[in-house]
Amino acid sequence: MAHFPVNHPARPLYRVLSGLIGLYILVFGVYGVAETWGDGLFSREDTSALGLRTNLAFSLVSVIFGAFLIIGASRRGNLGHYMNLTAGAVFLVTGILMMSVLQTQVNILNFSMATVIVSLLFGLILLATGLYDKVGTEEHAEEERRRREHPIAEAHR
């Protein structure tokens, strides 16, 4: 069974970090939609927004994902925890898949290597924030602290 830290002291920092990533993705998406409006949905032209190549489809998906991440970062419960874990996995899988089709006609989102690197980086950061922003009861958090401070005594119980 996976172990996720509960009520981690750096939770606010992780929520801000995921919110900033969401804000960047939302701004990228809005700017990308403005830049690619009128082009084909899956255009492979050399259009970029905020330094990353994009097309209309990728820009629209970015607007949705950016809003998704901002909503997740603004929630106090475990919804943000699950949203960050999911988004991190999606970004990692998308980055790897798009890297494998980078120089082919299957590159429907118009990724470049820089876009792949940013996607993988955001995926790792979001996965890390998802691992450390779980919320639990105060009793559960206290048991977690006791286990962390006295691991040998807890192992013999």
Rank of each mutant, 00 (worst) to 15 (best):
A34E: 11
R44F: 12
N78A: 00
S18N: 11
R53M: 04
A153R: 06
T104D: 13
E35F: 07
L121Y: 07
M113Q: 05
L131G: 13
S119F: 08
E35D: 08
G88L: 06
V6R: 09
F42T: 14
R53S: 04
I71H: 05
F58Y: 15
L121V: 15
E45R: 00
T115S: 10
L109T: 11
V6S: 06
V118F: 12
A141D: 15
A49D: 03
V30S: 01
H81F: 15
I71S: 03
G123Y: 08
T36A: 12
S59Y: 06
A67R: 02
V61I: 14
A73S: 06
L121F: 13
L85P: 12
N84D: 12
L41K: 09
L131M: 06
N55P: 11
G22R: 02
G95W: 08
A128D: 15
I96A: 13
A10W: 04
R146W: 06
V61M: 14
M99W: 14
W37Q: 07
D46E: 09
L102I: 12
E35M: 01
S48P: 06
F122Y: 10
R11Q: 09
G66T: 10
A73I: 03
G22D: 02
H156T: 15
L41C: 03
G51D: 13
L60H: 02
L13V: 11
L20Q: 05
R53W: 13
R145D: 15
R75Q: 11
M83R: 11
R157M: 10
L69G: 04
H140M: 08
